[in-house]
Write a protein that binds this DNA or RNA. Sequence first.
DNA 1: ATCGTTATCGGGAACGTTACCAGAAAATGC
DNA 2: GCATTTTCTGGTAACGTTCCCGATAACGAT
Lengths: 345, 345
Amino acid sequence: METITIKDIARALNLSTSTVSRALRNSYEINNETKKLVLEYAEKMNYRPNPIALSLRDSKSKSIGVIIPEIANNFFSQLINGIESIAYNMGYHVVIFQSHESYEREVANTNYLVSRKVDGLLVSLSSLTRDLTHFEELLDKGMPIVFIDRVPKNIDTHKIVVDNFFGSYQATEHLIKTGRRRIAHLTSPFYLSITMERLAGYRQALEDNGIPFDESYVKYCHHGGMMLTENETAVQELLNLPEPPDAIFTASDRLTTSCMSVLIQKNVKIPEEMALVGFTNTSVAELFNPPLTTVVQPAIDMGHQATELLIRLIEHPKKPTIFETRSLQTSLIIRDSTVEKSVNA
Amino acid sequence: METITIKDIARALNLSTSTVSRALRNSYEINNETKKLVLEYAEKMNYRPNPIALSLRDSKSKSIGVIIPEIANNFFSQLINGIESIAYNMGYHVVIFQSHESYEREVANTNYLVSRKVDGLLVSLSSLTRDLTHFEELLDKGMPIVFIDRVPKNIDTHKIVVDNFFGSYQATEHLIKTGRRRIAHLTSPFYLSITMERLAGYRQALEDNGIPFDESYVKYCHHGGMMLTENETAVQELLNLPEPPDAIFTASDRLTTSCMSVLIQKNVKIPEEMALVGFTNTSVAELFNPPLTTVVQPAIDMGHQATELLIRLIEHPKKPTIFETRSLQTSLIIRDSTVEKSVNA
DNA sequence: ATCGTTATCGGGAACGTTACCAGAAAATGC
DNA sequence: GCATTTTCTGGTAACGTTCCCGATAACGAT
């Protein structure tokens, strides 16, 4: 029951490997009877072409590499689902690597995937990545890359992002409309694209509503919520302010849940003392105490679109593409963590 | 800046490919000076052996395939982290496939991974898998496989599980000790190993405490909580019972959260009217309303151990191994969803 | 001087596949 | 009836690597 090769078929049918190969690819220059013979025998013996041999020959692998910070994160695991479903339908398979928010591992993963001859790359930058030469060199060599969510500013290729500015604006505005004035912002390292955009939306919403921007209300967490102590410190600092905030708007998934965790631990009442709204794709926000108002990213759709774009790039390599940056809309799901202040205060 | 091959080195140094190959592998039969020459040149040119060519030649890939039901699940994504960290250290890379709880996709993934020449397989069965011949055939051919968590009963290979019986016993006993007598059990399809073991632990705890086992308190959800309507129906049936339960013990991750969701939606007070405890690895159980008592599986450690076992199998193929089934301990994390009945009732 | 040893290297095949180049037989054209 | 297409098939090289088998030279040993 060993795997059968084209050579085996050729021998069994007294044909050459070339003929068998062409028959299997349904080449026009093969006699119909021969074709039928080969096809039937191949079917009977359950022949499957060896993808490794094909990769070696064509320097293609019908596979796409995915480099993301962390799988154990609602946004990214949903993103993978989106990626996988399209890739699967288009005959590609997906190889997933985690950078664990480390620049070194991101580079290592990239190199490995390249030597593994993936046909293209889907990347969401690690929070510690500031040098992008490993991707730039690849792009120069012609490797298709599409960036998702955490995208580099100065690299010209397809990008799929959400309208962070508007998502952020909307969340902040919602907090203002429900009666908050002292709105803090807990966010990721400032050099990430998402950080700057979300910060900008937050600022704009404040300004548009006549609330002065106060730098001391903004906290950057370099580990994106992975280190509880960091968040704890940040929240504590906010609480210690002469005028502590009456709302916190958190800019990422991990940050949102860990911030809520700190607030609960410190017995801060949500939403009475502190309203909370955050970017997160957790499926269980409605089970929280209180149910959490969230800014949800269309992770699956982002995965879909990024994969479509990437495969198009792979399959039409020459076409001098004009690269696009697609910006999808977030949705604000309002729950109890931000109910009207006047009602509850 | 194209990738450099052994042939390029040979040409540049006026050597044969064989010599270069041997020099790179530090063979004893190569002159030290030649070695140095080759090594230095390879280093300078940043030579990396082509893994595809190696795979084709040796039918090995230094990679292990992972087939799990769903990535977007706390248990499995933590499991992957465990798998990945060990594999990474041992020089293997990990290819992840999701069965999406579908038997057909599980088979398709298996075939694909085999044709892709993975060196071994890490598998957690889909909830709809009843026929195991695709794995049995592979095992016969000598492919190393280690099963995790959802394991087949009648296949002889390494398995990593948790002590489902005890975990379940402990959870049920906890419910009894906090004053519940009518304890329902919401679980996965009955033919899964985990289902039977968890059911057995639940029964035993009831019996040991003099509570008769009541079949109408047990509900099997075939989609493992993926279909909300199914759970809703199950919970509704429990509530409609002449003597509705005063506690629900749920047997899997998805089931636990979706059950809680249904209870909240139906305005059932937790824990006063209904206590709740369930198997889940969510990192945010403490944020729930009320904070949820959970049975937590050591997912990362399971991943570690499974991967170690698999790689040992891969690297020592002949050794007539005695297969082991390692059973790790769950931990019961007690939170408010199961506080004393008398206190709150 | 002939032989076996040792050290060092090259040639070729093989892994499975496809593409290019031929070539034979059959069919067509005039 | 002969040249010329058309139709079909086979042989071979190539992708990058390793391994088996030889080959060559130097060097003692007999």
